[in-house]
Amino acid sequence: MLQAVVETKALRMSTVVKAVCVGSVILGLAGCVSGTGGYRPPVEDRTEQGGVIQPAESTSTGVMVRPAVVSEGRTEQQVSVPVPTPMTSRPQNPAVIALLKSADQQKSSGSMQAAESSLERAQRIAPRDPEIYYQWADIRRLEGQWSQAEQLALKGTNMAIGDAIMLRRLWLLIADIRSGVGDSAGAKQAKNKAFSY
């Protein structure tokens, strides 16, 4: 009668999540070492990542504290910009892996809203993880929201710069999306782009 709340439906989903996560903790424990001398401002540098074990989060959310020398009378030469090179693997936080996994399961079972909620949670934790945008774009594609699907995939490519494998997947997805709306020229372009990686 009363609408008063808080059901405790129990652990159905969270047990799955847990199981997945425990396994993925180990996978997720890869991290970054950062820091070379001198002030290097604007460009994300992925050349020095990987190899050293650290809690995953420090990379996936992009915290990189670099030693830098800044003083009032600084000369312009100190602003130097390194040129990033492609990276091969991207460490993920176990929480993000778990959320991606549930999103995938929710997607396969047709619960698109729940899947989107999981991806939104993952995005808040690791907004620079292109996998999230890949999954998200795919959901929008399945829902027939073509232009949103493409935009999300494009956002993914923006986050995946330097990650050839991810870029190829994303551009193939974009090709799929474009074929979906009958844009065969655009699809072909995207496919070519994919195979350039």
Partner: peptide, 14 residues
């Protein structure tokens, strides 16, 4: 906050 990191797109050269 986390540091801002601008990602260098393919079409950019320094």
């Amino acid at each position: 906050p986390h540091s801002f990191m601008s990602v260098q797109p393919e079409g950019i050269e320094y």
